[in-house]
């Protein structure tokens, strides 16, 4: 009984986080837009309508909706995933394993995707269990045996059950946009700002706004990254534990993580915005054995050695 309540709580928590992310995203977009308005378009003295703010909010609002409803497709497309083909032995085996974990977890069957890359990794995406997908790289299927692969799929099914996938997918798509927007703002500042100075000289008020805009354009992606790193840590331990609960075989997942750590080489699949979704973070910091404040602050995943340690302790306790 207590378990059901826990999962329910987790799901609510993830929904809250997602709403928070979207609001945060809208605010950042709005502030950037407003600064563009007041610096480039002379709002409110010269023009009576804050066009840039309006457009920024319109775009970011649309983007939020798109990331909620179609984030999974964007993410899958961005890493070049294709549906698994049951005619091919390895892919049929993968589909079978997902079916097994589907039965164990009592969730609907997720769609199964393959990513043709040697980097071994996997992730789950979608907005809820009814619209979920699991993607696995060719490299992962190559280095893991059946039991280990089952452990990794169990980990992804746990993310689906806890609705981590919603938060992760929305974060991945919105993060991409924030980086893009602030890039555009910086570029606009560079070109537009230069022209302006030549034309009419500069006021001190404008200079302050210029500095603000510059600072914001640099900070926005960093802040955004920090935020979603902070909201996504303990859930990896939880997904590991849930995987062990589903497969009843914590050692297989521990072995899989060991193999993954050895074969990562810091290469992400697709772009960096997807890395936080993967079973093992491709970024160096989470592969390190040490856990210090900075490594913690920047990594989406706990150190892999620590995860392996907990899994083995679980096996020992059982």
């Amino acid at each position: 009984m207590s378990e059901i309540i826990t999962f329910y709580d987790l799901q609510r928590k993830n929904l809250r986080k997602t709403i928070f992310l979207i609001i945060f995203f809208l605010v950042i977009a709005g502030v950037i837009g407003f600064l563009v308005d007041s610096y480039f378009l002379g709002f409110p003295q010269k023009s009576s309508f804050p066009f840039a703010t309006f457009i920024a909010l319109l775009i970011s609002g649309t983007q939020s909706l798109v990331s909620y409803f179609n984030g999974d497709k964007i993410v899958l497309f961005s890493v070049g995933a294709r549906p698994a083909n049951p005619e091919i032995f390895e892919e049929k085996q993968l589909i079978n394993i997902v079916e097994e974990m589907k039965i164990a977890s009592g969730l609907p069957m997720p769609k199964v995707y393959i990513i043709e890359t040697d980097v071994p990794n996997a992730f789950a995406t979608g907005r809820d269990p009814e619209h979920s997908s699991v993607a696995v790289t060719r490299g992962l299927m190559k280095i893991l045996n059946r039991e280990e692969l089952q452990g990794v799929i169990g980990h992804e099914m746990a993310h689906i059950r806890n609705r981590d996938i919603l938060t992760m997918t929305v974060a991945a798509t919105l993060l991409g946009i924030i980086v893009l927007l602030s890039d555009l703002a910086l570029r606009g500042l560079w070109w537009g700002g230069g022209r302006r100075r030549r034309d009419r000289g500069k006021g001190s008020g404008n200079a302050i706004v210029l500095i603000l805009l510059l600072v914001l354009a640099i900070l926005a992606p960093i802040i955004a990254r920090l935020i979603f790193l902070a909201i996504s840590r303990s859930r990896e331990y939880l997904a590991d534990a849930s995987s062990a609960e589903l497969t009843r075989n914590p050692v297989a997942l521990a072995k899989a993580l060991e193999k993954l750590a050895l074969n990562q080489k810091g290469k992400p699949i697709g772009n960096k915005a997807v890395s936080h979704m993967c079973v093992v973070s491709p970024l160096r910091s989470s592969l390190m054995e040490k856990e210090n404040f900075w490594a913690n602050l920047w990594s989406t995943h706990p150190p892999i050695q620590k995860r392996i340690f907990y899994l083995k302790r679980m096996a020992h306790a059982a």
Binding site: F89, E99, Q150, L246
Partner: peptide, 18 residues
Amino acid sequence: VMALQEELTNTENKISFA
């Protein structure tokens, strides 16, 4: 043979999870 072995492993796992 490999496909049959995989299918049998799969059914056995499904039985045990179900």
